Simulated scan of single mutants.
Amino acid sequence: MSNSIFQAKEFYDFLTGKAYTAISRRLHKNFREAGIDITSEQWSILYSLWEEEGLTQQELATRTFREKTAITRLINNLERSQLVIRVVDKADRRTNLIYLTKAGRSLKEKCLAQANKTLAEALIHVKDDHVRIAKDTLKTVYENLS
């Protein structure tokens, strides 16, 4: 295998899961240790709703880069945990709007603290200029493919 093919494979493997999986697992661990009973996937839904409530399931799917069927399952679980509620859209009765409950809103600060802790753990030995370069590179990769 040529060196360039190996480097491309290594880069592709890293981008497609290793870093994401490691951060996701650590975030889930930090949530558990803080007594927060949500998954990292549920966190992405809650985070989107903390930014803007009353989103449709399709809007949540787009914002979190997930399939609509996965969003349905995540919302079902968040609804069972009484963190979100579905409200029928008055303008389109076929559509549900997703809102946080009081319990869902109250998790925000505690969750953000754990997310910041996780990010600090992930970046502990990474120089600021390397973070900036990685961010710029990943943004460019995303824009190239969007």
Rank of each mutant, 00 (worst) to 15 (best):
I71K: 08
F14L: 11
L138I: 14
G54H: 06
L49R: 04
H130D: 15
K90P: 05
T101Y: 10
S4P: 04
I71D: 09
L15D: 01
L97A: 07
Y47F: 06
L60K: 08
R66A: 09
D92Y: 04
N77H: 14
H130R: 02
C111Y: 07
I98V: 14
R94S: 13
E59L: 10
G35T: 10
I36Q: 02
D129I: 06
V87P: 09
I71L: 12
E143W: 01
G104S: 08
I85K: 12
E41K: 12
L27F: 06
A61I: 06
S2V: 03
A22C: 04
D37K: 13
Q58N: 12
Q57A: 01
V131H: 03
N77D: 14
T118K: 11
V88S: 11
I133D: 15
Q57N: 05
S40P: 06
Q7H: 08
R93C: 01
K117L: 15
Y20T: 02
A22K: 10
Y99T: 04
H28F: 11
A34G: 04
T101P: 04
L55V: 03
L112Y: 14
K108E: 09
T140M: 02
A103P: 00
R63S: 00
N77Y: 11
A103Q: 13
Q114T: 07
N116V: 02
L107E: 02
K9L: 15
T64E: 06
L97Y: 05
E109D: 12
A134K: 01
K90A: 03
W43N: 06
A134W: 03
S44Q: 12
I98D: 08
Y99P: 02
A115Y: 14
K117P: 05
N76R: 11
T56N: 07
T118S: 14
S146W: 07
T101H: 10
L15A: 04
R93N: 08
A113Y: 04
A103M: 08
L15T: 03
